[in-house]
Design a protein around this nucleic acid. Sequence first.
DNA 1: CTTGACTGCTAAATCCATTTAGCGACGCTC
DNA 2: GAGCGTCGCTAAATGGATTTAGCAGTCAAG
Lengths: 352, 352
Amino acid sequence: MLRSARDVSSKPAVTIYEIAKHVGVSPAAVSSALANRHVERRLSADTVRRIRVAARELGYVPNMAGRRLRSHRSATRQFDLAILTSFEAPLPLVAQVLRALQRAVDAATTEHTRYDVAIEMFHAGRLREKPGLLNADRYHGVILTNTLPVDDEFLADARLPYPVVILGRRIPRYCCVLESPDAVGRRAAELLLEQGCRKVAVLHGRQLTYTTSDRLGSFTRALRERGGADPIDLSCDGLHPRDGAAALADYLAKHGEIDGLFAVNDSLAAGAYDAIRAAGRKIPDDIVVVGIGDYELAEYLDPPLSTVAGANDAMVAEAVPMLFRLLRGDADLPREVVVVPPVIRRRSTERR
Amino acid sequence: MLRSARDVSSKPAVTIYEIAKHVGVSPAAVSSALANRHVERRLSADTVRRIRVAARELGYVPNMAGRRLRSHRSATRQFDLAILTSFEAPLPLVAQVLRALQRAVDAATTEHTRYDVAIEMFHAGRLREKPGLLNADRYHGVILTNTLPVDDEFLADARLPYPVVILGRRIPRYCCVLESPDAVGRRAAELLLEQGCRKVAVLHGRQLTYTTSDRLGSFTRALRERGGADPIDLSCDGLHPRDGAAALADYLAKHGEIDGLFAVNDSLAAGAYDAIRAAGRKIPDDIVVVGIGDYELAEYLDPPLSTVAGANDAMVAEAVPMLFRLLRGDADLPREVVVVPPVIRRRSTERR
DNA sequence: CTTGACTGCTAAATCCATTTAGCGACGCTC
DNA sequence: GAGCGTCGCTAAATGGATTTAGCAGTCAAG
């Protein structure tokens, strides 16, 4: 097979020294040829060709650490920062964090201090498999968000050897920035009860994050405290609008009535709009709807969607300076900052 | 000032050797203390303390390249891949690229070959200022997207010393994956003319990317070819729904009529919905609306928004394997792949 | 007084790629 | 045949951190 001649991915890696030995030249020659410096270094065309062929055959992949070490301007401090989030999470919060972080970094950059910011992702629930997470050789500091409970357990037991700020979760021994754990559910319940709703449902994804559990729990508690019935639990296959539409349509077709709906994000709420419309009900007169997150398009649904905004702005505004303080090594840091989410009232909760 | 005692960011960086000299111990001791290995290496508590104090005072920042070089399991090939995009760009495409890339990477990972994928961002129009872009010491390969024309010019003149796939632009000497440059505008024009529109407007951001120019140009050309009048040009301050709403409301208030609207993305279209509704018109009967991009919530606007989908799926499906082929060093690569965007017809373009 | 254990530290090798200085061979000139 | 230039390549130093092997010195046990 032609393929196997080139498929070296399961063989051990090679360095320029091995290529050099293989070709019968010095490592210097190999380096020069592979960096396209062969003209100024006066290597013969044939030597260059033989080196290139060997590099391909052996599956040479340059070691960036080696290169960077060598080319590093030694008077410069370099901070490598990362935002770690799960693939499955929505990106707006991450983008917000990134922008805030970049602003801070732009301001802190000097002649002798540089920063590098990247977003890296892990599979939700499999944070522990993320390579290099437990090593001290990758990041100078990290903002970590969108973990699942199993990730949080892993973190609680692990010790990451660099500064970490956790966004949106409370995990022992870490610096955490989170929204007031029960504010979201409580505010949503208040909005619905205020409009006179008596029979409400919650719409959520099947997989519950800590945050979502908190929100649902506090929603139920707030309903009870104010004399309402427990909510009807509608679980969706995913977090896409179509999942919300399907779950609610199914319920409406089979069981009948609700007069209020709390969706754990605005996408599910948008899907619910569709199901409600299809069932011939009106928002908010027949069913009052509240979402979470204030997605960009929430205002442009018909009627505009009321939403308990995840307190993203405020969280980001706390998390970024906190990371910098950790990097600086400030000892007297608050371990936990709690912010309170605002409520954005629109017509989906304004009965006449 | 207390602050200046610690503010070392503008002084040259230090290494463990300098700390060692400063404290009067060996670099080995410094390394052990800073890596929290002092117990097993039997350093005295006082030595550890003095090292820590010196490290803080001198503003020590570990050099990750040095660490990684040392700790690298030498049998492992490591590829560092990045998706480079601008801060100002919408994220859905980037997220899609990332997921596809990660899938490919997960499949290609073996015992001796590892991959690292990150999203990195640059300020739109200032790609040239991105540090390390021209060095060969950061990335093994890159997918680059959401550039502005000035970035494209920079790229056309530059030579990036690693494999690059450009997404959504055509730049000489690079491997590019892009949508058919005039298909989007043409399809949008066809949709509007088909519904009998005679007086149409385009809604776009003030800053025109290459892609947007192409789309607007081909839209105008297609209208002309089919005997329509040139579109009315509505320029918005930004790309947020509220910018679209403002621009269209302004136009409707002052000048009066249109019967068709082409918005260069679904966010602007959503804003336009609002302005149209506020002006007492109906979609699609008074004004037919077409967007671009098929955003998640487009289907849930009222009426559901027709959209010429940026051919993201198809582009991503081409770009990721192309990057891998470049990494493998395949010589016979197509320089350019053009994909054709699909049209998603919904009720915003279905007059009765 | 010898042996062994322990304490607290250091010297030197190592990771990988790049670059500078320079070596040997050859051909040419005078 | 001495001097010079060119060609094609190599040896060795370099970048920063980590780790292994081991060196002095002290103390206690035998």
